[in-house]
């Protein structure tokens, strides 16, 4: 797929240049992007990071009420140790830092190294990994699951708690409970092409789809011919509801997300079915979100995220924020 770029090597830096030219609330220290003014003095810092190519995840959520700073990696590569350290330092107000990012090997190594180095400077960090992708490992190995779109909901919950003045342990505990009750599954319709590459990242024939494929093209559950929107909605809802959680409730936050190339109109066609299915199961969609929240470059496909809500989670999701990519339905 042709791309509007100058050079592949400058893809990320020039993207960040544009982001900062657009959003004057943001500042940048090399590959760390952070808020110039904190939404509250003396608050716990919320820091994330990850590879580029998933916009608005991760850096797009650097906004009041969500994350304070983000370490930005190359396309589909983790952020460097240096950028993790810069992001942590920029968000530090002496109240500790919640490191909230997806469960990927490189990201973990780099944030671990960075936080260990900064602990010597007196910066206390606690880590919480997004592990919402149910296709990436079974319930018995839930700690091996990847973090995908569900991270966005966790950003909002952690950000809201930090803005209320909660301490690091409380922010971590509530957000961790939310993570335990958050599940995502995706379906890919077409591959994506990385900047500078001649070929797509993986092969997916025309008319074929892969249920459960990850946001970097990691293998899913099955690959077969394209199904109807209703059939896909049925399977995705069934799989999410069948995945066990400790305390399921009858109110959920729902995020229906395009992976890049799939238009929002097709998401609406799916939502028409999903909303009926959940109603039939006695589940209320308290927080509906439809749109582009987590992409995989130009991949065709969608992901569906459900988070079971209690009062604290729902209040945090509804708390004030000011982010271009955080859009609640009515």
């Amino acid at each position: 797929m042709d791309k509007i770029i100058n050079t592949a090597d400058n893809y990320v830096n020039e993207m960040l240049d544009g982001l900062l030219a657009w959003d004057k609330r943001l500042a940048r220290d090399d590959r760390a992007v952070f808020l110039r003014r904190s939404s509250r003095p003396n608050k716990v810092g919320i820091v994330s990071g990850g590879g580029s190519g998933h916009f608005p995840l991760f850096v797009g959520y650097t906004a009041p009420g969500l994350i304070d700073a983000c370490a930005v990696g190359d396309v589909f590569a983790g952020p460097s140790v240096d950028s993790c350290m810069r992001a942590i330092k920029s968000a530090d107000q002496g109240q500790g830092i919640l490191l909230l990012y997806g469960n990927y090997g490189g990201d973990k190594m780099n944030f671990d190294l960075a936080s260990e180095m900064l602990e010597m400077d007196g910066i206390r960090c606690k880590t919480l990994l997004g592990t919402d992708d149910i296709a990436s490992a079974g319930p018995q190995e839930a700690d091996k699951r990847r973090g995908v779109a569900g991270l966005v909901l966790l950003y909002k919950i952690a950000g809201a708690l930090a803005d209320e003045g909660a301490d690091l342990d409380h922010v971590h505990a509530v957000t961790a409970a939310a993570a335990d009750h958050c599940r995502t599954i995706g379906v890919a319709l077409s591959s994506c092409t990385l900047p500078g590459r001649d070929a797509p990242s993986f092969d997916l024939a025309a008319g074929e789809i892969e249920m459960g494929m990850g946001i970097h093209g990691e293998p899913g559950i099955w690959r077969d011919k394209l199904k109807s929107a209703d059939a896909l909605a049925d399977e995705m809802v069934d799989r999410l509801l069948a995945d066990p959680v400790a305390q399921p409730t009858n109110r959920v936050a729902l995020m229906l997300n395009t992976l890049g190339a799939t238009p929002v109109e097709e998401l609406l066609i799916m939502y028409r079915r999903i909303s009926v299915l959940l109603e039939q199961r006695g589940i209320t969609i308290a927080v509906p979100m439809i749109g582009p929240f987590t992409s995989s470059m130009d991949m065709g496909g969608v992901s569906l995220t459900l988070m079971y809500l209690d009062d604290a989670r729902e209040a945090a999701l509804r708390a004030p924020s000011d982010c271009r990519y955080w859009n609640l339905g009515s």
């Binding site: 370490a71 190359d74 983790g78 140790v81 240096d82 490189g106 190594m109 780099n110 190294l113």
Partner: peptide
Amino acid sequence: AKICARSTGSSLGTLVTV
């Protein structure tokens, strides 16, 4: 090590840093 720490974020690259 410092150059590595600011130049790479991949798993393999970070192992080089280590």
